[in-house]
């Protein structure tokens, strides 16, 4: 399976949300990383064929997905970043309904619904009204919906937003389990979500693909560019003005700053081990959410 994104752009009036994006994807988990407004959702909508590219095309095994119609939707699972649910429905009824929208046979759907409920750990809430669900439970039901038709292409837009650490780990494991024979495309701000599972990371900045690489390679790029330095309160503002600052931590001897910079930023700085968060900082200026 080969999903080819060929020079795809999306223009809203005179703003380019995505600009000449090209990439070739095969089976595995791809992580789309980028700050707010980078164009992640815009790109994912085009991949889900619910939005038309302004330029370029998206080919699955040489077939244009916008021409594949049903054949594409048959193998597609999509979780939008924001969505609502029928509040008066129980989880089971909701999933049964979506199974029918996905054209699943009813008998088959009954088992499948139980299976996906179990995958997202909602089995014991299966008969509860969705209106009584917490935010994280709703998100998990959304994930379950996307998995119903065993999608060969799974597109999930910030699937872990609002999930507690335990559920996030469960989801991460789920993805790496199923990714063997599928293309999984996920966006996130939470770098730890992709730390162990992403085959490749795609860095998106203002609609442009600035890097596409393995995690190891990205880490390699910032290796030797991450520094730790102890400063006093007085010089902190100046440091913050001059450098990209990661964590700031107060300790007995002052304030410990993590700095991402090509060269040694100040005299007494010491090089430290780079993490994915430093990668984010290095490419996007702003700090990433640290979690789990």
């Amino acid at each position: 399976m080969r999903l080819l994104i060929d020079n795809v752009s999306k223009k809203f009036k005179d703003k380019w949300a995505i600009k000449y994006f090209s990439a070739e994807l095969t089976e595995g988990v791809y992580a789309l990383l980028g700050p707010n407004g980078a164009g992640k959702t815009t790109l994912m909508r085009m991949l889900a064929d619910i939005s038309m590219p302004s330029t370029g095309r998206i080919l699955l095994n040489d077939k244009d997905i916008s021409l594949m119609g049903d054949d594409y939707r048959d193998i597609l699972g999509y979780l939008p970043q924001e969505f609502g649910l029928y509040k008066n429905f129980t989880a089971v009824r909701f999933l049964m309904y979506f199974a029918s929208l996905k054209g699943l046979d009813k008998k088959f759907a009954i088992d499948k619904v139980e299976e996906v409920l179990d995958l997202v750990n909602l089995t014991k809430d299966r008969k509860r009204k969705i209106g009584t669900f917490s935010g994280g439970m709703k998100r998990r039901l959304g994930i379950a919906q996307a998995l119903l038709n065993d999608p060969k292409i799974l597109i999930v837009d910030e699937p872990t937003a609002g999930l507690d650490p335990q559920e996030r780990i469960r989801f991460r494991n789920l993805l790496s389990e199923i990714a063997g024979d599928r293309i999984v495309f996920l966006s996130t701000h939470i770098v730890s979500d992709i730390e162990y599972i992403a085959k490749e990371v795609l860095l998106l900045k203002q609609g442009e693909l600035i890097q596409r690489s393995t995690l190891g390679n990205l880490l390699e790029q910032v290796k030797g560019k991450v520094w730790s330095v102890n400063v006093t309160q007085a010089v902190l503002p100046e440091i913050q003005r001059q450098f990209k600052i990661g964590n700031i931590q107060r300790n007995e001897s002052g304030i410990e700053c993590r700095i991402v910079h090509d060269e040694k930023p100040v005299e007494n700085a010491v090089a430290v081990h780079a993490t994915l968060e430093d990668v984010y900082l290095y490419f996007f200026d702003k700090g990433a959410i640290k979690d789990v």
Partner: peptide
Amino acid sequence: QGLLEMEMACKF
């Protein structure tokens, strides 16, 4: 109720 995007990605 905000299901449009999910519906659009379904076969039906």
